[in-house]
Computed example of a mutant assay.
Amino acid sequence: QFTADEDGAVTVDWVVLTAAIVGLGIAVLTSVSGGTTGLASKISSKLNTMTIMNHGG
């Protein structure tokens, strides 16, 4: 009866699936973070070089 019991197998499946999803999320964040940092730096430098013009009034 002990060897035929499959209650723990479902738990192991969920743990493995959850770990895979978390690992995939970390991999995506790692690969995207470099690009977003570079883009934010370019936007910041562009905004710092712009001038505000006052028309009228």
Rank of each mutant, 00 (worst) to 15 (best):
Q1R: 13
Q1A: 15
F2L: 14
F2T: 09
F2D: 09
F2R: 10
F2K: 10
T3P: 01
A4Y: 08
A4P: 03
A4E: 12
E6D: 14
E6N: 12
E6Q: 15
D7L: 11
D7M: 14
D7H: 09
D7Q: 08
A9S: 13
V10F: 15
T11K: 10
T11C: 12
V12N: 06
V12D: 09
D13L: 15
W14R: 14
W14M: 14
V15P: 02
V16H: 00
T18P: 00
T18K: 07
A19Q: 07
I21P: 00
V22N: 08
V22L: 13
V22D: 06
V22T: 13
G23D: 06
G25I: 03
I26Y: 07
A27N: 08
V28I: 15
V28T: 03
T30V: 14
T30L: 12
S31G: 12
S31P: 01
S31M: 14
V32H: 00
S33H: 03
S33I: 09
S33W: 02
S33Q: 11
G34V: 02
G35W: 03
G35K: 04
G35T: 02
G35Q: 01
T36S: 05
T36Y: 04
T37R: 11
T37G: 06
G38D: 05
G38S: 10
L39R: 04
L39I: 05
L39G: 01
A40G: 06
S41I: 06
K42P: 01
I43C: 01
S44Y: 01
S44H: 09
S45N: 06
L47E: 04
L47M: 11
L47K: 06
N48W: 01
M50E: 01
T51M: 03
T51D: 09
M53W: 06
M53D: 03
H55T: 07
H55M: 08
H55Y: 07
G56I: 02
G56M: 05
G56S: 10
G57R: 04
